[in-house]
C-alpha cells in the first residue's frame, strides 16, 4: 500500500468513527478537501496521524465539537458577492412579487448574515410581511449566532459597501443598532425568519418554496451528495421557483439540470421550469 492509500484509509476509519459514535455522516463530503481540513485540525491539536486521534474522538465530546466547528466553517458576510444580490433585486424579486406570499429556504445559512441581507432586499421591495424565510444549518453554534444577529462592528464597513454595490440606496445603518463593538440587527428583520437545524445529508424536503438559497455549501460535498441535495431543492421548489447558488458552484453537471433554466448565468441563479 502506498502512503497516500494508507492516509486515505485512515480518513475512512476516522469518518466511520464519527458516524458510529455521533451520527454525523461525512461519507459523501468532498474527500480531498475534507481530509485536508481534518489534517489541519489535528495538526493544531497536536496529533501526528489521523488514526492517533480516534480514541480521543470517541471519548472526548468537546474535542468532537471543536472538530465539527472546523469542518462546518462557512465564510459569509452581508450581501456576499453583491452582484448576486443585485441580480436577485433586478431579476428574481420582480417575478416573486407576483405571488401573494413567499416562502424562502436558505439552506446552510451559517451565521446568518446573508439571511438578513435577503430580508432587507424583500423589505425594500415592499414585500413587508408577505414572506417567510426558513434559515437552516446543521451547526447549532452557527445557528445560535444567526438567531442573535449580532456581528462585529469592524465588519460594518464591508457590509455597507456590499449593500451599496447590491443596489441598496438607503443608509445601511438603518438596519442595525451599534452597541460597543457590535452591531445588532433590527428586531423588525427577524420577524419573518425562522432559524432551524436541518442537515442536508440526512433530512428531507421543505415544501412549496419560491426561492431556495444555498451558497458555498455544495462545494463541501461529493457528486453523489450534491445530486441528493439538488434533488432535495428540486422537490422543495414550486415550478417557477428560483434556486440561488454560490457564484463558483454550478447546476450544470447535475442530474436535475434539465428542470431548470438560467436566470442569471454568472450569478448562478436558476429558475425551475418543470
Amino acid at each position: 500500500m502506498k502512503k497516500i492509500e494508507i492516509e486515505n484509509l485512515e480518513t475512512e476509519l476516522f469518518l466511520d468513527a464519527i458516524n458510529k459514535r455521533y451520527g454525523y455522516d461525512f461519507t459523501h463530503y468532498a474527500s480531498a478537501s475534507l481530509k485536508r481540513r481534518i489534517q489541519h485540525f489535528l495538526g493544531e491539536t497536536n496529533h501526528n496521524r489521523i488514526t492517533e486521534a480516534i480514541p480521543r474522538l470517541l471519548y472526548d465530546v468537546d474535542f468532537f465539537e471543536a472538530l465539527i466547528q472546523t469542518l462546518s466553517i462557512t465564510v459569509t458576510e452581508m450581501f456576499r458577492d453583491p452582484f448576486v444580490y443585485r441580480a436577485v433585486r433586478e431579476k428574481v424579486i420582480p417575478q416573486l412579487k407576483t405571488y401573494p406570499f413567499l416562502k424562502i429556504w436558505h439552506a446552510g445559512c451559517a451565521t446568518g448574515e446573508e439571511v438578513y441581507s435577503m430580508a432587507i432586499l424583500l423589505k425594500e421591495a415592499d414585500i413587508c410581511d408577505g414572506f417567510h424565510i426558513y434559515a437552516t444549518d446543521f451547526n447549532d453554534y452557527a445557528l445560535k449566532k444567526a438567531k442573535e444577529g449580532i456581528y462585529p462592528l469592524k465588519h460594518a464597513r464591508t457590509s455597507t459597501v456590499n449593500y451599496q454595490k447590491s443596489g441598496g440606496t438607503k443608509a445601511f445603518s438603518e438596519y442595525y443598532q451599534s452597541k460597543y463593538d457590535s452591531v445588532i440587527m433590527n428586531r423588525e428583520l427577524k420577524k419573518n425568519i425562522t432559524f432551524a437545524n436541518h442537515n442536508l445529508v440526512t433530512d428531507s424536503v421543505f415544501g412549496e418554496m419560491h426561492l431556495v438559497v444555498c451558497r458555498n455549501v455544495l462545494i463541501y460535498f461529493d457528486r453523489v451528495l450534491q445530486d441528493r441535495v439538488f434533488n432535495l431543492f428540486n422537490d422543495s421548489l414550486i415550478t417557477g421557483g428560483f434556486l440561488c447558488m454560490g457564484s463558483k458552484e454550478s447546476l450544470q453537471f447535475s442530474e436535475v439540470y434539465e428542470h431548470f433554466e438560467e436566470t442569471a448565468n454568472k450569478e448562478k441563479i436558476y429558475r425551475k421550469i418543470k
Binding site: 468532498a30 474527500s31 480531498a32 478537501s33 485536508r36 481540513r37 489541519h40 472546523t70 466553517i73 462557512t74 465564510v75 458555498n216 462545494i219 463541501y220 463558483k248
Partner: peptide, 14 residues
C-alpha cells in the same frame, strides 16, 4: 483543490 485526476473542487475552509 485537486479532487481527482479529472476534476477540481473548491473549498471555503480556513
Amino acid at each position: 483543490v485537486v479532487a481527482d485526476s479529472k476534476s477540481l473542487t473548491l473549498s471555503s475552509g480556513e
